[in-house]
Design a protein around this nucleic acid. Structure first.
Length: 124
DNA sequence: TGTATGACCCTGA
DNA sequence: CTCAGGGCCATAC
């Protein structure tokens, strides 16, 4: 058999996409992760660029909190004039995330920073 | 087979 | 701060 084309997408991609969905689903309200962090936490540091695509493939029934994923600059990666951009901003603000001049302070709202803090605590 | 594009990231000017 | 260049992986044409 040569190739197994398109009807069912390739398994590796599917599996990785599911890992992404899981990571994104673990982000608590009021916090955000960057695409690079999601890629890293899902086991593929170099797949930052695929994260967006994976979320695009995500089925609606997952109710994936895609709005909690932003770029490393702390900004929304949709065009500022797009409806998607506005939707994402509204949802985040509804969870208490503050936009300062169009940007989010990752030191304050970044979930990765929260995870790091837990390690500092050195629980006994 | 090669080029262009994408919900990206990092560094340097 | 903005802009440009290089790197990254997969998809579309």
């Amino acid at each position: 058999m040569t190739d197994a084309p398109s009807s069912e997408a390739r398994k590796p991609d599917r599996e990785w996409a599911e890992a992404v969905w899981k990571v994104v689903g673990e982000i608590p309200p009021g916090h955000v992760l960057t695409y690079g962090e999601v890629a890293r936490l899902s086991g593929n540091p170099r797949f930052a660029r695929r994260v967006g695509q994976a979320m695009r493939w995500a089925p609606r029934n997952l109710q994936l909190p895609w709005h909690r994923v932003i770029n490393a600059q702390g900004k929304i990666s949709f065009p500022p004039d797009s409806a998607a951009h506005q939707r994402q901003k509204d949802r985040l603000e509804e969870e208490g995330v503050v936009f300062l001049n169009g940007k989010i302070d990752l030191e304050r709202f970044g979930y990765q920073g929260v995870l790091d803090k837990i390690f500092w605590e050195d629980p006994a």
